[in-house]
Design a protein around this nucleic acid. Structure first.
Lengths: 372, 372
DNA sequence: AATTCATGTGAGAACGTTCACACAAAAGCG
DNA sequence: CGCTTTTGTGTGAACGTTCTCACATGAATT
């Protein structure tokens, strides 16, 4: 319980050199002869010297710490991403400060403020507001390296890594259509931020507002859903779109039960993320439907339990850990070179087939059908 | 992209006061008259002054940051715990540095070292070595506030929060026995650290080595399993104990398949944690057994999917988030008062019944039976 | 009028590093 | 031998705070 922390000055005194010299060998920068180096290291070892990173950071202007702000660290989606980030951070000998925003702008602002106060060398953010995000623009303006993950912010030109949500939803729903499904319900958050509405997105043909990349992934997945219908020449029905509006399994379950119990229930469900998937599973259990006989299911994001359900649940699998790793690497490179052109990356998820999709023989026969 | 960071000196100059005075009002410590206070605050606002926490930390000797080291942040168990910690940290306006140990001593040592380098005000650790843990003893010796979570270290007298693993496993397995099960398999990690062996733990009657609290929770759950048998006057059979030895679903699944396919399969399975539970579910699927008709199931740790499986899976539910919150609060209090007696807390999990346990009518009838 | 006392303020030294610079000694070069 | 260059070390000023003093005021008390 000794309070005496040994400093460079102590080491220098013991080794009979100046603090500057001792500093040079201990911080290894600048010249130092072999003999002096030995002497200083010996003294440091004997005194149990440990450099004070605070003082070093103060003068060097870098903390070797990066910050992360995500929606909710306990969701499997973010937890894996963070694991990926953490691995890269450890490999680079960097600390990792983590905060959650609970998908609320004010908490996200607080988080960013905390990270800036801690003088992180850079931050990885999953922004909850993709249109305004004044605090992120300010942080970027202030020159702090930033990488966006899963979502992008309109007009904010920083590195980012996301998924091809539109394309993979399009392909996944396409698989459902090719399996003969004609009434496919979409269960998605589709929160009303940024002025996007279901009407707006459905109004053009083919559907696709130009700024779709700056909206929540759930909107992109809706677009993919609509495009798949367009591809197949089938008119989508707006009563099959469950707009959950909040990021909640409970609400998703409620909505899903409603649609499953309606007079004209869907033959398949497509969920836009893991939270929705859990809600839908609860709904399926509540109405007592069997998969895939009564209802087919395709979920965005592959969760552990989907593999050992009987039958297994088809999923669009996102490389979550890899996303985290790449985000961290992008950030490291950005820190090393703040001026280069920002990079915008998109990963491609894949459809994992497990048997939760029933093949329906349509009158005109199955055209296409999944690979398996 | 301006590099000019405005300091207390700038504010002081603009407000025509000394840096000391400006420091007093901006850091609010010491005297400052109302007029001066107003002047300084105005100047600070106009210059957009933001205090440099690095410099403050250097001199004050506190960083307002706490560190956490857990096994793996992407496991639902730790993810929830961290969420709980994070909530309390945010409320206390503290930063949170997170690292994973992957249950390996050397990585844990690295993590602790990182945290000490970052000069955290305290740390919460889920130790992977409950016997030696020299680095934890050293950190404690060095006076840094520490709270252990989920596991304790022998002879290390610090605050800790765990679960009553022995008691709740004993109760849970007791429920299985009361339901008439006589061949109950335990699937648990039971890694061979610290010299504990199945033989040793089974050798006394009633079972229970005195230092059980300083072993992994899986050993404690084994003890609960044995005690439940002892309570019921039934001799446990060592061939029903699956020692997975690593923290891996895959291996757990393999072991579980073996025992399910043996000549004398169990009628019920008891898993010691979430990882084992996932493995067991995969095994049940692989052998094509139906729950609860062919095999009953009781899992330690309640995971999301257990609720919407058909039937639901009985679980011993651990208050994970609450554990995190309490750990963080313990740490805050320890930081505030480093000298008081360490507190050793145990939370009590509860058995959530969902229908994965079949009632077996024994020849002598069901004696007792669950509450429901 | 002299002494206390609370209330403010400022000068300057910490905190533990790094960094710019000066400078001495040794070495290279004509 | 004088000159530059290299190699190595020390001095002292940063970095941006907080903290310990000293020291003014002016009011209250003796």
């Amino acid at each position: 319980m000794r309070k005496a922390t040994t400093t460079i000055a102590d080491v220098a005194r013991k080794a009979n050199v100046s603090t500057a010299t001792a500093g040079r060998v201990l911080g290894n920068y600048g010249y130092a002869s072999e003999t002096v180096r030995k002497k200083v290291q010996k003294a440091a070892r004997e005194l149990g010297y440990r450099p004070n990173h605070l003082a070093r950071s103060l003068i060097r202007g870098e903390t070797r710490t990066i910050g992360v702000v995500v929606g909710d660290i306990q969701s499997p989606f973010y937890a894996r991403i963070i694991r990926g980030i953490s691995d890269v951070a450890r490999a680079s000998d960097m600390g990792l400060i983590i905060t959650n925003s609970d998908e609320a702008t004010d908490l996200e602002e607080q988080s960013v403020e905390l990270l800036m106060d801690k003088k992180v060398d850079g931050m990885i953010v999953s922004p909850c507001d993709t249109i305004n995000a004044a605090h992120l623009r300010a942080a970027h303006e202030a020159g702090i390296p930033m990488v966006l993950i899963d979502r992008r912010v309109k007009g904010l030109e920083v590195d980012s890594i996301s998924l091809d949500s539109v394309g993979s939803a399009r392909a996944g729903v396409g698989d459902l259509l090719r399996a003969g499904h004609r009434r496919i319900a979409l269960v998605a958050e589709l929160a009303g931020t940024g002025g996007m509405t279901i009407e707006r997105i459905m109004s053009s043909s083919p559907p696709g507002p130009p700024d779709i990349n700056y909206h929540y992934p759930s909107w992109q997945r809706l677009l993919g859903y609509l495009l798949a219908h367009h591809d197949a020449g089938i008119a989508p029905q707006s009563d099959l779109i469950c707009q959950v509006k909040s990021y909640s399994s409970k609400v998703a379950a409620k909505k899903a039960v409603e649609i499953l119990r309606s007079d004209t229930p869907p033959t398949a469900l497509f969920t836009a993320d893991g939270v929705m998937s859990a809600g839908v599973m609860a709904a399926v259990k509540e109405v007592g439907a069997r998969i895939p006989d009564d209802i087919s299911l395709l979920c965005f994001d592959d969760l552990d339990w989907m593999e050992f359900m009987v039958p297994g649940i088809d999923a669009i699998s996102q490389p979550r850990k890899q996303m985290g790793q790449m985000a961290a690497r992008l950030l490291m490179e950005r820190i090393a070179d703040p001026t280069s052109e920002p990079r915008v990356l998109d990963l491609v998820p894949r459809h994992v087939e497990r048997g939760s999709i029933r093949q329906i023989l349509t009158t005109e026969g199955v055209n296409g059908g999944p690979d398996a």
